[in-house]
């Protein structure tokens, strides 16, 4: 499964993930301290500039991720226009888009493996459970595409006997398959030494 980090290589890709995450927290807190349309608008433009720096492919990918916010921007604009406070509505739109844009920038410039390393470091106090967490993450990544195929297979099996779209019933064998797979994988783990005491 492909993560959401961008294949376009930027300088930010080589910065440590922990540092980027800290910077993101600080920047977001600072952002929420701003109120007015002008500073917030400038922040938004600055974020767009950051997206534009690595080139048009990166910019387009970043803008595509922001596109999902349009219903909320519309709500803000309409709401504040109706209450006679349009500038505030636009300011809030800028703030939201900037916050989301900054966060996505970190996601797009950080490899999944680097993010996972941060998580494992944060989990150091958990001691022996760390191995289980690392394994659990790997299992999700491995099995999600498999389950998507099984889900599609079950949907196909439904459509082979019904002209209607698959109903909720299909989820029952889907879960049964997942539970069976969980048993098989547990067995495979035990055959390879198990996870010790959990």
């Amino acid at each position: 499964m492909i993560s959401l980090s961008s294949p376009v290589k930027t300088r930010a890709h080589s910065w440590p993930a922990g540092a980027k995450l800290m910077a993101l927290c600080v920047a977001t807190v600072a952002l929420f301290g701003l109120q007015h349309i002008v500073p917030l608008g400038l922040c938004f433009v600055a974020v767009l500039a950051l997206y534009a720096a690595p080139g048009p492919v990166f910019l387009r990918a970043g803008l595509a991720r922001l596109w999902g916010l349009w219903p909320f921007v519309a709500v803000l604009i309409l709401w504040h226009w109706a209450t006679g406070d349009l500038a505030q509505g636009v300011a809030l739109g800028f703030r939201m888009a900037t916050a989301v844009g900054l966060a996505n920038l970190v996601t797009m410039t950080t490899r999944l493996s680097d993010m996972m390393a941060v998580v494992m470091w944060l989990c150091t106090p958990l001691g022996r459970h760390r191995r289980a967490i690392g394994l659990a993450m790997a299992l999700v990544i491995r099995f999600t595409p498999i389950f998507v195929l099984k889900g599609q297979g079950l949907a196909l099996a439904w459509r082979a006997r019904s002209a209607r779209r698959p109903g909720w019933r299909v989820i029952v064998p889907f879960m049964a398959l997942a539970l069976d797979d969980a048993d098989h994988v547990a067995e495979a783990l035990r055959a390879r030494g198990g996870l010790g005491n959990l």
């Binding site: 289980a132 299992l139 999700v140 491995r142 999600t144 389950f147 997942a178 797979d181 969980a182």
Partner: peptide, 11 residues
């Protein structure tokens, strides 16, 4: 436990 948790997350 681990496999059930992980596989349900995948689900």
């Amino acid at each position: 436990n681990v496999t059930q948790i992980a596989l349900f997350a995948a689900l």
